[in-house]
Amino acid sequence: MTESAPDFTPVTLITGFLGSGKTTLLQRLLADPALADTAVLINEFGEVALDHHLLERIDERTVLLKSGCLCCTVRGELADALRDLHSRRARGSIPPFRRVIVESTGLADPFPVLTTLHADPVLRHHFRMANVITTVDAVTGARTLAAHPESVKQIAVADRIVLTKTDLAEAGTIAALTRRVRAINPSAPLHTASDIAPSVTLLFSDRSSRDAAAQDWFDQQMRTPTTAEHTDGVEAFAIVFDHQVDWTAFSLWLTMLLNRYGDAVLRVKGILDISDSEAPVAVHGVQHLVHSPTHMQSWPDGDRRSRIVFIVQGLDPDAVKTSFATFCGKPRNRAAAA
């Protein structure tokens, strides 16, 4: 237990389709003494709420959001709940907490939760989005992905993916599902529930480790460029170029692209060589939302090429590359696409 609240309380979102093991995962995570100082917000869909009983931890820091689906009706309630927790912590009426976990309903689009933290004038000064953890049922995951677009989006925006019920699924099923998940989100570390050790490491990564995960994937792309894999209309592609990019031109282009195609751009990650800047700048975006860019310490392996990875749904990669080249300048030597 800590004496004081952190300047910015990290908020971790656990999402995943109905029955994919979110509550079980949360239960295991909360059993870890390291997570004793955690506030939990649970969003349930249905007349009888059960998940908070399954958690076996009901205290004044466990809040049940009753409005149903997190993505449409509860944004205000989520903001209110977080403000209330913050206020009560400041007054000392509840034990201090250092992190918040939000468990969403299986039907929720995770994007509005992320925007709630960014858009709310109070919350954005006290809370920061940490990780999005997405659970995927190893037995039914493939069918779910085929039938429910929400589940594709849940995987695309994930920072951590947990395959659950792997002990119940055939090895071939798990391997096929892993390929599909990887095609949707190539960079998020993938865990299985059987080997997972509930830990702060899984739950929280700071921005630098998030940058590192993207960098690892970039490095892999440089060695073995993938052909775009098609999964439910979702594909990942990269724009790689070795000329410096003008930040003004890039921000103009990306804001215009996300305004028109934010729903189709599930994820964008980039390491950019910006004009007049020695250090590379990392950019992360989820749909219409772009996180504040960060300066990285140095270029990976001395490779100063800029790389932007897109995970898109129903958007033509060639059209995006052509548009980028027009707005941000033609590459002098190369505009390779992985």
Binding site: R124, W247, T248, S251, T255, L272, I274, S275, D276, S277, A279, V281, V283, V290, H291, S292, P293, H295
Partner: peptide
């Protein structure tokens, strides 16, 4: 404005 485009890499804009 607290907007991501304002956090540019150019000196004076960060």
């Amino acid at each position: 404005a607290d907007h991501w485009t304002d956090a540019a890499a150019r000196p004076g804009v960060f």
